[in-house]
Design a binder for these strands. Structure first.
Length: 501
RNA sequence: GGUUUCGUGGCCGAGUGGUUAGGCACAGCUCUGCAAAAGCUGCUACAGCGGUUCGAAUCCGCUCGAAACCUCCA
């Protein structure tokens, strides 16, 4: 609908911005690596999925039919000790591994809704695609890129990289020889592998393993990287448009995915690889062990030593949107406060914009410099999004447009100086960006509660009476008492309003 | 140790070979009984040192500092 806009995105594979050309015009297949559901969702996850949510929304806005696949990993992802993450949680809580997965998958979905992220088109689970993964292992073996050892199957990275020069390591900038030199000697099942860089695509179960399936090689479970390859192939095809995930998945996860897909079918899985950057706290990556961490519920309740107050989900979302998705973003109390105010200001401006009249009676039909400036800023917002989804640029343009809204509202710019159709366009663009593309939503400033409204109306009426009689003592007492109760009274030209602070 | 990225005004954070990003904070003004709120205006920075260039914060080199990855991680 908005075609032809030229969309550019940064492809990790080539290391530069490229013009986006989908395989099938008008359609986009996008796969994003979802969470491993072994614990409460991490705030960093929220940033990644919020970034891809905006990407998804913008693609939709551009008129693409998008199939957005985001998996849930519920098996095969091992801890440092070589234990499955689900199984570990299950033993601790004395429940089934699938109960662990279910508990945290539900929590994850709740959090996605709180952040106003759209649901993906398909959300496949690794445990639901064991046959597909076994088939993929077979394909890899048939093509000679895997080998079996004691019931486990490993991917032969050396042979693969000899047959496909330049492929392994392209995404992460890694060199095989260095991998050999760097590899630690305490890696899992090191003795079974031909080479330290090889990785398991099927693992034979040990007696303590809880989640196991039968396969031609052994009773066991699939390797961690395999589920994404198998499920992306199943739902998007052998080669699809966009594969995304967090920066820290580049190596080894995504590198190995590329190798697996090439090894299984001789084709590259995705044309464009998009990676989001990390969320930092106090300038460092969050880490539970260091105590340098904050989770979403803490952010929303204010219950953390790192912040001074509670922040709403939309304030946090806006905070994320102010930075580009490929930049690290440092969470600070000051930064969050600035974002909270900036978000509120933009929403207030939007409310003012809704009230601007668009009737053309006193419009003289000429194009003013304001018209041109407003249209240019609208174009800036779009160009920002076209340039690798630069939400920061788009927000800046919206803020500048907000200046025009205020000046029109307060009469610094006469109404008849801006064409009615430009105002209409401004209204539509504002709402499109705020709600459809950025995925923000208005947060109830007050409970939808008639009782409170009625009480407030009564109180403010009493104060208005006092003020009419110049009884400043009474009127100020009311104002101060309300402030102490967390309610701010705002005296405006068109009357009094109030807000919970 | 290896690989990579980054270092922007009081704070957050875009961008980029030549034009004020934006937000927050701050200051002035308007409004106002006072204040708050709101609006307008102002606030010209790019780690340091060299080099390329008519011109660099933007390109190159070095130094210093930070972070990520190399091992589970969004």
């Amino acid at each position: 609908m908005k075609q032809p806009r030229v969309l550019k995105l940064y492809n990790s594979l080539s290391g530069k911005k490229e013009i986006f050309n989908p395989i099938t015009p008008g359609y986009v297949g996008m796969y994003v690596c979802g969470p491993t559901v072994y614990s409460d969702v991490h705030l960093g996850n929220c940033r990644t999925f919020t970034s891809f949510d905006v990407i998804y929304r913008y693609l939709l806005h551009l008129g693409y039919r998008v199939r957005y696949v985001r998996n849930i990993t519920d098996v095969g992802h091992l801890t440092d000790d070589g234990e499955d993450r689900m199984a570990k949680g299950a033993k601790v809580a004395q429940i089934e591994p699938m109960e662990v997965a279910q508990r945290y998958a539900v929590g994850f979905h709740d959090m996605m809704r709180i952040f106003n992220n759209l649901a993906p088109s398909i959300e496949p689970r690794a445990t639901g695609h064991i046959p597909e993964q076994i088939e993929m292992v077979q394909d890899i073996l048939e093509r000679g890129y895997g080998y079996e050892r004691n019931g486990s199957v490993y991917f032969n990275v050396i042979k693969f990289s000899q047959d496909h020069p330049g492929v392994y390591g392209q995404l992460s900038g890694r060199v095989i020889d260095e991998l050999m030199a760097e590899s630690r000697d305490n890696l899992k099942n090191q003795d079974e592998k031909n080479h330290p860089a090889d990785f398991a695509i099927w693992m034979k179960a040990r007696p303590q393993d809880l989640m196991v399936w039968k396969s031609p090689w052994s009773t066991g479970f699939p390797g961690w990287h395999l589920e994404c390859s198998a499920m992306s192939t199943k739902y998007l095809g052998k080669t699809f448009d966009i594969h995304g995930g967090g920066n820290d998945l580049k190596f080894p996860h995504h590198e190995n995915e590329v190798a697996q897909s090439n090894g299984a079918c001789g084709c590259s899985p995705a044309n464009y690889w998009l990676h989001t950057n990390m969320l930092l706290l106090n300038g460092k990556k969050m880490s539970k062990s260091d105590g340098n961490t904050i989770n979403p519920p803490q952010l929303f309740s204010g219950d953390s030593e790192h912040i001074s107050k509670a922040y709403s989900p939309m304030a946090v979302r806006f905070f994320m949107l102010q930075a580009h998705y490929r930049s690290t973003l440092d969470i600070t109390d000051d930064g969050l406060q600035a974002a909270e105010k900036g978000f509120k200001k933009l929403m207030d401006t939007y409310a003012l914009l809704q009230k601007l009249p668009v009737d053309a009676r006193d419009f003289d039909g000429s194009e003013s410099e304001h018209d041109r400036a407003i249209l240019a800023l609208i174009e800036d917002a779009y160009e920002g999004m076209d340039d690798d989804f630069n939400t920061a640029i788009a927000i800046a343009a919206l803020n500048e447009l907000g200046g025009y809204v205020n000046k029109l509202t307060h009469g610094q710019i006469p109404h008849n100086d801006v064409a009615p159709w430009v105002i209409e366009r401004l209204k539509s663009v504002f709402s499109t960006f705020l709600f459809d593309i950025f995925g923000l939503r208005e947060e109830a400033a007050r409970e939808d509660n008639g009782t409170v409204d009625n009480l407030m109306n009564l109180i403010l009426e009493l104060r208005a009476n006092a003020r009419a009689q110049k009884d400043w003592t009474s009127s100020d007492k009311i104002r101060d008492a309300l402030a102490a109760a967390g309610i701010q009274v705002k005296d405006g030209k068109e009357g009094v309003s109030w807000e919970k602070v």
